[in-house]
Design a protein around this nucleic acid. Structure first.
Lengths: 344, 344
DNA sequence: CTGAAAGCGCTTACAG
DNA sequence: CTGAAAGCGCTTACAG
């Protein structure tokens, strides 16, 4: 077993070279004899010595690292974004620091990122708007580039997000064309700021058809606790079924809620889409395993992350933009079997 | 806007105190006037200055950080483990560095962790055994504590893992008691080392009933590519349906594969569990949204992570153990509706 | 409480 | 290629 070496000084002694020389080999500087390089490389694999990153980066110009703050609901699509982004950052020579957000902890997380002197901070998912906005202000004050993926509605934040209003508009148009006029919204409150975009799109479609949102759409969300999405969808749908005239179409915040609702409706003996239509959101793999196959909206994850990388890299290269960057991704409606002609 | 401060020297000048004094406040050392502390705290929030972690940790004794290497298949249970572990580590004052594994990259990842002078390394999930074993050897050589969660079968690795052999034994006993004698294994090859434990448990149950593994269980996995689990389960089940005498019970590697298989069977007009039984693994939320509800095995994530923390903390406190630590978590069979009496 | 000093492990001119 | 030196931003005795 070779000795355990913890500094370039020790390592240089071990190889029998000067500290300076070793450092030059490590940093691939030109003008070195091949034999010297080989000697160092050999000793490197022999001892598996790694230079202390804290010293290197303290001395160096930049840390080549990016902080990524994830929303705490770690769903498959959120994670796909994370994994894709981390891979692409790595390919550009950037390391990523990942932290999972918990309400009220964004300050701690941001301080950690800043103390690690990250060169940019990315937020992926949905957060408390007030908290996030404060963090963004701090980042701007620090002249540290940032990017928000998904969370929408912070004017001063650089944002890449799916056009959820457009998605809802298209979905509603689809349902309206099928003759639906009464809608149950699942997980989409009529007046909560975090769902403003969705409601905006829904309202736009209704208005274009000469319909009024409060008159034909209803939401029960305020009254029950969202812990687990499948269960949540199930509970909400049951509440709708207690109405004298339940809606003919159910529009869910995401696929999980839609699936829970489908189960509740089916348990109540309702055929889908014969007696009721149901729509999801995200186009997760599970959608094509349900009976009936779930109509949903595809999030376009690849284009989203591609755009995110562009926005990040441009900031890393040219510094912070003069005005906030806002990039919108076009959603894609995926019509399957869970939506059909309205029964009445 | 207060100035952007990047070092304690600047900051001390800004507050009008000595660098030493500031450092002492930052490190909560005793014997300081309350008024001094307040002055520093105030300036701290005003400027949102954070000391450079690279300098702090370079000087300090330890980095209080742990490297976590995740398997690349980011499923909900895997992520629940990650989020839980990160939260618990944070509560103990440890920061976590997270990297997502890709085949052949474990060396790069480990070197990154070591250069960051992490105090321990955790692997969560399943990896290439040879690669992982090499990494564990390196860690032992570096006297850096480690822990492997889930991946089983590396004798020298400290491991916390679900007893998958026991889980399969119980599942098979359940099916055998229901009269099943022919089994379709989905995603569990008969001879692949990574599935050794599962097969071991299956064989044990069969042997105890005087049955022979190759005679009554079959697997098609070698012949098709696993890209997406639902689809994979669907494809595998269809292959079984082409047999003259398809099995009466299907045992899947995980819930997704089981769900894909259920769909294929139902599409072929087979009632579950009337005509065929299906079992999953992991007890994900989706299991109780399927029709029929899926019989599966619960992974016991809470106890797993609790045990993992114990093993980690004991190493961090007392140094590396004399011999590898192996802790096994008892699985829990969750019998629902997808398993029933054998048709023939 | 202040100030000057040493040292953590690296990189980078600089003179030999 | 070597060696001595300065400096990155911190902490920590040490003397005032």
């Amino acid at each position: 077993m070779p000795p355990r070496i913890t500094s370039t000084a020790e390592f240089a002694r071990y190889v029998g070279l000067a500290r300076t020389t070793v450092s030059r080999v490590l940093n691939r500087q030109p003008g070195l004899k091949q034999s010297t390089i080989d000697r160092v490389q050999h000793a490197l694999t022999e001892t598996s010595f790694t230079p202390n990153a804290y010293a290197t980066l303290l001395k160096g110009k930049g840390t080549s690292s990016v902080g990524i703050c994830m929303e705490n609901l770690l769903t498959p699509p959120i994670l796909l974004k994370l994994a894709t982004l981390q891979r692409q950052l790595r390919s550009q020579g950037y390391t990523s620091l990942i932290e999972v957000y918990a309400r009220g902890e964004s300050r701690t997380i941001l301080r950690h990122f800043l103390s690690m002197r990250v060169e940019a901070v990315v937020f992926i998912g949905h957060f408390d708007t007030g908290e996030l906005e404060t963090r963004i202000r701090e980042l701007i004050g620090h002249k540290t580039p940032h990017l928000v993926i998904d969370h929408h509605g912070i004017p001063l934040a650089n944002t890449v997000t799916l056009d959820r209003a457009q998605a809802m508009r298209e979905m509603m148009n689809h349902l309206l064309e099928l003759g639906h006029r009464s809608f149950g919204l699942l997980g989409i409150p009529l007046d909560h700021p975090s769902r403003f975009e969705r409601i905006h799109g829904i309202r736009a479609a209704l208005t274009a058809h000469g319909l009024d949102l409060p008159a034909c759409a209803r939401s029960f969300d305020a009254q029950c606790l969202r812990t687990q999405d499948f269960e949540f969808g199930h509970t909400l749908a049951r509440q709708f079924l207690e109405l004298k005239q339940p809606p003919t179409a159910y529009v869910a915040l995401n696929d999980e809620i839609a699936i829970g609702a489908m189960r509740a409706l089916q348990e109540a003996g309702l055929a889908i889409p014969g007696a009721a239509s149901v729509t999801g959101f995200n186009n997760q793999d599970i959608c094509s395993m349900m009976a009936p196959l779930l109509t949903t909206v595809d999030q376009q994850i690849e284009p989203t992350i591609k755009m995110a990388m562009q926005v990040l890299m441009s900031q890393l290269r040219d510094g912070m933009p003069a005005r906030p960057i806002l990039r919108t991704i076009k959603p894609e409606l995926v019509i399957r079997q869970s939506t059909g002609r309205a029964a009445r």
